[in-house]
Simulated assay, not measured.
Amino acid sequence: MTEYQKIEYQIGKNGKIVEKVLNATGSNCIETTKEVEKSLGEIESQELLPEYYQEDESISISENQSLQQW
C-alpha cells in the first residue's frame, strides 16, 4: 500500500536547505527525495529520524509458539 509522505524544506538566509520527510518509514524517505537531492546539489550532512529505523509496513513478522502439556 502506498503511503502519503510530506516533505518540508526550510531555506536559511545563508542558502542552507534543510529537508525533512514526514510519514515515511525505513528507506522510503531516502528514495522519496533522491531525485530532488540530485537537483539541489551536494549533501553536506544527513540526519535520519527515528522513523528510518522502523520496519516498513509491508514487512510482516510472525512467530509461532506451541505449548505441550505432559
Rank of each mutant, 00 (worst) to 15 (best):
Y52T: 01
T32P: 03
E57H: 06
P50T: 05
S66D: 07
G15N: 11
V21Y: 05
S66G: 09
T33P: 02
E51F: 04
E19M: 12
I11F: 01
E51W: 02
N14A: 15
K34G: 02
Q69T: 00
C29V: 08
I17Y: 04
N14H: 15
Q65R: 10
V18H: 12
I17T: 05
G15Y: 03
K38P: 00
Y9V: 13
K6P: 02
Y4N: 07
N23E: 14
Q68L: 03
I30G: 01
E42F: 07
S66P: 04
Y52Q: 02
E31W: 07
S60G: 14
E55Y: 09
I11P: 02
I43P: 00
T33I: 06
C29W: 01
A24H: 08
S27E: 10
S62E: 14
N14M: 14
K20W: 04
E55R: 08
E31K: 14
G41D: 07
T32G: 07
I61H: 12
L49F: 06
S62P: 09
E44D: 04
V18Q: 13
S66T: 10
S27N: 09
E47K: 07
S62V: 13
M1L: 09
Y4I: 09
K20N: 11
G12R: 13
I11Y: 11
Q46S: 08
I30Q: 03
P50A: 02
Q69C: 01
I7K: 06
S60Q: 15
W70L: 00
I7P: 02
E19C: 11
K6Y: 10
S66F: 07
I59N: 13
L67W: 03
V36P: 00
Q46H: 05
G12L: 15
S45Y: 04
V18E: 15
V21F: 06
G12H: 14
L40A: 05
T25C: 12
Q54E: 01
E3P: 04
N28R: 10
Q46T: 07
L48H: 04
G15T: 04
L49E: 12
G41K: 02
S66K: 10
T2R: 12
I17N: 06
Y52L: 03
K20E: 15
I11M: 15
Q46N: 05
E35K: 01
N23I: 04
K16R: 13
Y9Q: 12
M1E: 09
Q10T: 15
S39Q: 11
